[in-house]
Design a binder for these strands. Structure first.
Lengths: 216, 216, 216, 216
DNA sequence: TATGAATGAGAATTCATTCAT
DNA sequence: TATGAATGAATTCTCATTCAT
């Protein structure tokens, strides 16, 4: 089945792609706002301005739609991570940059946090069923390993740091604060998203991470 | 509404309390497993062995039941935290103990993580409506502040550490790893809950936090 | 869980039973008229005057409802067959009576024919899944075997007749005519259900069956 | 609307015919397997390897497609019946041959049975609307009448046999057994389609019919 | 002739909640 | 206090059919 690429057909294909992407974007917003369980296919249709039936036409069912959204979200953050070029910076700067990037990415893409939560609530079965999971592995791990190695060699970093552990820690410092922002704000009685609070958090995280990696 | 405390009545009241607690426990498990949106009142009734109607009798509706579960979960962790008695230990030990406690509590009470996620997905409206939120504030914050102060005074800790930031960071290091255990395991292709992986994580977290607080 | 049989409870139980039976009757009519595939749960609810949700409450889903209807239909015809008491009649009369009974039963219970058709269209999976299939075996087979034996002994019947084959043949003669009444009427251009046509058919069938069993 | 028969056009027409036949065959299989109500236009398209839209182009809608399938099925069996040439055989052989033909035709064309069931479930409205119904009348009726007449004249057959009644009976004996094969097998607990069971059934039917027609 | 994209009406099923006792 | 029966409003998913090219 070779693709017919007459203009008319191409346009139709592009329409199909566009529809799929429109649906994906609408679904991402809906899932981010309500979680997998609370998301409504009807609302996704409304958000996308397309027919509900079309969602099933392209994505089979709600579960697979979620899977597609999740994969796209991972692909997106991985793409951004890829462009960080940590190896162009001195080790300490590279680590600081990673902390900042993570924080900013989560801030600007709050949907990523809720999607991740939903995925884990469902025990990541959407990833287990995805043939493309491995591609979702962060390219940062290798880069970060190299950064740590350089830092160790030039004497600025302590040795024996596992890049995966560090990566998880950097993510966790931002993630917990932002994902649980509402409960934390309620309990502490202050707005954790106020500009000042945000910049204080970023400083703190940088200090924690650098305080750890830098040889004392 | 003074309580009638004739023996017969007392017994009935005790029964009522028991039923309420049974329902709460069943609801906690259900909410933990499926989130607020995915939880089913029918299943809660089944789990509890009690009639569905009774759930409404005691808790009005699903939302308020969730609120009750959430408050109870907070009360429970706060109670445990209260018993940590960090002030009986030297500052560094106290911090290490807090890291360990947090990790172990999350490990043993995975429902706490999903409840928190659900609460935040719903923008903590269940807490905002709770008149008892403030009581949910961790007693640890004050204790931890005192520990940090002592450490600073005896010269072992760096100064200027905000106990709330530190508390959030300690929680975040455990939380992200455990809450996202499924996606992380899938992506990294290894079981993050294996005993060895768990102990490595705990060591890493202690090093990160102590590496930060200890004056270098 | 012993049954509480206070009057109030008994009545409630009777209500439950009554509702279930009302649903079954409505479902039988609907399935008979439209087949399993064409039947609409909404219409069954309407026909029964009960809430659609209740159908699911009692019967799980449409498939199981069909299974229940099918089993009931079988139980009913078996019950009637049981009351035929063929052994009280001389062999030839007994066979004639069976032919007449079968014809009349199908005439008065056209739903039985369509239910059977639906069941077979679905390859009898509803029976395979029924733990009570064996009870649906016709008591007539044994009775008919005895009738044939008696006839053979008194010299009026030919020997070597398999009661199952005969039973199937008797049924088939009525079944085909009645079940395919519409196509046959259309093709032959005459009304097969007119009184005269009906009595002619019955005579013919009796002659065929008796012509076969009677020793010539 | 005279047909344009330039070579190029002829070829296109042949293509069109081929497509129509492909669709008809696919539809026949689908209707046979699932009945009219359970058949899916999507699946018919898949089975035929042709576009769904084409089905509507050629056959208007699902109903008319079913009608076309039904008419074709009738035309086919009538064609085969026409080739039986019963008048070339002695009366008793002719009748035996008809019994065997009917049995074998149903065995080899199980779709005919389910199509007939579907048609009757819908009260043969597809035939009533067909202008060609009368052509579907079996040529056998006349032939069979002649056979019966010859048999009566040569003294081997009883008199007064209505060929339509006999035709229906012969069909019914095979039809019931094969159409209800699944329920019967389930209830009797044995496989009615096993080779031995099949040949026993054929013997039995021949005996029944010949036992009836032959003058005793 | 042939096709992929799109749709509205409907169908099965689910769910929180209330009734009646 | 406790419970089985009942319900209305969704909710996911399906299906025949049409559009546009």
């Amino acid at each position: 089945m070779t693709r017919d690429t007459t203009p008319a057909n191409e346009e139709r294909l592009r329409d199909a792609d566009r529809s799929q992407n429109t649906i994906l974007a609408a679904a991402r917003d809906e899932f981010a706002e309500y979680g997998l369980g609370g998301a409504r296919v009807d609302r996704i249709a409304e958000r996308s301005g397309l027919n509900k039936r079309l969602i099933y036409y392209y994505f089979e069912d709600k579960e697979r739609l979620f899977q597609a959204v999740l994969e796209q979200a991972y692909r997106h953050i991985r793409e951004e991570e890829r462009q960080l070029n940590l190896l162009d910076l001195p080790p300490a700067d590279a680590v600081r940059r990673l902390v900042e990037f993570t924080w900013n990415y989560y801030l600007e893409h709050p949907e990523f946090l809720t999607l991740l939560n939903s995925a884990n609530l469902h025990r990541a079965r959407h990833l287990d069923e995805s043939p493309r999971v491995r591609e979702l592995n962060s390219p940062l791990i290798a880069m970060l390993g190299e950064v740590l190695e350089r830092g160790r060699k030039d004497g600025s970093f302590r040795g024996g740091i596992d890049p995966i552990q560090l990566y998880v820690s950097i993510a966790g410092l931002s993630y917990f604060y932002l994902s649980n922002n509402f409960t934390l704000s309620a309990i502490f009685g202050r707005d954790l998203m106020a500009p000042k609070a945000r910049s204080e958090r970023l400083s703190h995280m940088s200090e924690v991470i650098l305080g750890y990696v830098l040889r004392s």
